[in-house]
Amino acid sequence: MTPSLSLLAALVAGLLAVERKAFLQAMFSRPLVAGTLLGLALGRPLEGLGLGGALELFFLGAVNIGASLPDNDLFTTSGAVCCAGGLASSAPLPVEATLAVSLLLALPVAKLGRSVDRLNEHLNGWAAVHAQRRGKVRARLRYNLFGLWLPFMATGAMALGGWLVGAFALPPLFAEGPPALPRGLAVVWSAFLMVAAATALRSIRTLRAGAYAAAAAAVAAGAQALRTFAF
């Protein structure tokens, strides 16, 4: 993979960060969509889709209401997908192992992203104070667009950082690690999917969530098992 693709992914991540809160909010920045778009930018759409789907469930309940800020799911998605893209192009590992290690490394950066969001709000407060000073009204109101920059830059940097870690820092570790490590990480990926599904279910505010989920889980697992063993 050429570094230019990682720069393209950083640009895509920055634009998605703008869409996340400052503009439109049409859910392009949700993990499932953002992961796929970043994966496409890196030439690894299936890795992006896999990580995006898992993170979508994990962050299903992350909601920005009033002054409360959720953890920044896009920070994690950008870091994880770009790390997976870099790792996949540098080390021949099973896909599940690549996804698991990228996810484990990128999950905590959602907290860092939240701190960046908080900083941006304080900077916006400064912009709002400037907008209320005397002067041409039209020019003062343009301060509204000031808040687009920090999310763009910070998320782009996170994507680039994720790619650098995946492409350069991780491959030597796998080369020197135990041979069974990729197999173990494949189990980690499946385990994370179960935790993510439980987290998603827990975040849904309806009385019958458990009953709906149990019925659907039984039907889905039964249908898949029949398909696997009968055909």
Binding site: L60, M194, A200, L201, A213, A217
Partner: peptide, 10 residues
């Protein structure tokens, strides 16, 4: 949403 999360788990 709940049914979908359950089906994913399944």
């Amino acid at each position: 949403a709940a049914a979908s999360a359950g089906a994913v788990a399944g």
